[in-house]
């Protein structure tokens, strides 16, 4: 696995316990720039790990370091370099897409001019630019999802975490999304958590597999290989 590229996310000895149940059990890994697929069955601990990295939950033990910034001690600094798309992203339906993204840009402290440039770049890329003045309530599920991806990328974060980003996207949109992520991951860390393996098979450079809270696989992935063939044993149970 490539670890020598900057930036670097270091996860060390992370344990999270919910009512005596270990959702994460001593998880450690380092990942650099590139796309990392976070895989695992339901209840394996993927969402808990993501929530721990982004700071939505506190872990019982362990650290998350992004270029040596600790998300517990330097959380503000850590979050400045973070982009996150949750599985169910929220939107203000009464806003137009452009208003919503500008609003998110303001919340993320992105200067207006830069924000507008980024919005135009990614909206054009994800074929939403012509719908920018349409109210979000009029958007389809797929369009909303693309909007969610853009809001996560507004601050061009060093660490981009996407939870089920391709849900609701059609074949063409998935292709566009993959190309965009491939390009973005050249200089940034991208973690994609998904159940749709085919979406990451062609773009993932690293694979992390969680099983019952334990990290059972952390290795470089050969693009184009079949995840289900290669890691079948982890998904059978």
């Amino acid at each position: 696995m490539e670890e020598n590229k900057m930036p670097l996310l270091s996860v060390s000895n992370v344990t999270k316990i919910y009512n005596e149940y270990k959702a994460l059990d001593d998880v450690s890994f380092n990942i650099g720039a590139g796309i990392t697929a976070l895989l695992g069955n339901n209840g394996a601990g993927k969402t808990t790990l993501i929530n721990g990295i982004v700071g939505l939950i506190e872990v019982n033990q362990g650290t998350f370091l992004l270029n040596e910034m600790d998300n517990a001690k330097e959380s503000k600094e850590f979050r400045r370099h973070l982009g996150f798309l949750p599985q169910e992203c929220g939107y203000y339906d009464e806003f137009t897409a452009l208003q919503f993204l500008r609003y998110m840009g303001a919340v993320k402290n992105v200067p207006r001019k830069k924000c507008d440039e980024v919005i135009e770049k990614y909206m054009t890329r994800l074929k939403l630019w012509e719908h920018r003045n349409k109210k979000i309530s009029k958007y389809s599920g797929g369009m909303k999802h693309r909007l969610g991806i853009i809001q996560a990328m507004l601050n061009e974060p060093m660490l981009l975490i996407l939870d089920e980003p391709t849900t609701g996207l059609d074949y063409v949109e998935r292709g566009i999304f993959s190309d965009m992520m491939r390009e973005y991951a050249k200089e940034h860390i991208v973690i994609i958590s998904t159940h749709i393996f085919s979406d990451v098979e062609n773009i993932a450079e690293n694979v992390l597999i969680l099983d019952a809270g334990k990290l059972v696989c952390n290795e470089k992935f050969e693009k184009g290989a079949s995840i289900i063939e290669k890691y079948k044993k982890y998904f059978e149970g």
């Binding site: 982004v54 503000k76 400045r80 996150f84 992203c89 939107y91 993320k108 402290n109 809001q151 996560a152």
Partner: peptide, 12 residues
Amino acid sequence: TRMTQIISVTEK
């Protein structure tokens, strides 16, 4: 709208 989740991971 569940906006609280994405807002709480922003810088401020």
